[in-house]
Amino acid sequence: MEVKIPEVKQSWPNPINTVKIGATKEEGGTRTSTVTVGGETTLPFYHFEGAIPHPPVVAMEVWDIPGEEWPEAVKEPFAEVMHDPGEWARKCVEEYGAELICLRLKGCDPNGANKSPKEAAQAARRVLESVGVPLIIWGCGNDEKDNEVFPLVAEAVAGENCLLGTITEDNYKTLTALCTAYKHKLIAESPVDINIAKQVNILALDAGFRLEDIVIFPSTGALGYGLEYIYSIMERTRIAGLKGDKVMAMPILCDIGIEVWGVKEAKAEVPEWGDPKKRGPLWEATTAYVYLLAGADILIMRHPEAVRATKAVIRQLMGERGGEGR
């Protein structure tokens, strides 16, 4: 008997924005490689239906201070380089194949090391000089301090077309203005809330920023910690963007490492749960995998094994359509 399979392909009217991060010498920067994300005309990995011109990418996380609080399993690979963000970044790129470096300015936290804006800018320069890949630079999360730090940092990396973050509904003016002035890309953050995700983008647009230069950060939760809420928000965001909502048609970023390595399932020393040196990376890779299926374009990760497994999965999911040979 002949079985007729119904036509299920859908044609979406609006592609997701394409965002390029990094600038080579010819483009006014010093990067030896750049990263381009977005441009999808269909849902994640629906190769039968539309185009996914740029595979998702993995950025590895580096701090401006040693990651003392990192669990042992994920600190170990970097133990010898954590004293220097430049060395740390180089190891991520040269040994573990990081496609971008995410420099988190954790040391600027006023409740922690309280490093100065100048020190933050130096750390950023140090990473830039140590690696050729593009940079994501993430504030310490204290609005007031970030607004003091970013003016110097954004200037210190001018011309490099970095991805800076984050702006939120309550704190967007300073960083948006800096990204406009120094031509960086912008991460728009929302607290697991699609309505606020849209609102932040509108605020940035209203402040004169180009929607095409925004990456959405819808918040990230580790496997077992509300991941499914974010999954459905990412799905709705992507569908809205593909349907034509220009304010939602952005690439999406997920901050995997920091979330996963904060949960007990990844880090706790519980013998009956198995070896934490294996369990942690597995938890991180599994979390990353789920977000890839939800539509993530940029993943920020920590453990080299999790990064390796995730990159392998991306190649598989991209099939022969551009995933090979990265």
Partner: peptide, 18 residues
Amino acid sequence: KEIYSDSYLQAFRMKAAL
């Protein structure tokens, strides 16, 4: 048919402008 945001009226106008 559209995703809510507090500035949805503005978003509607922006859509027109875009």
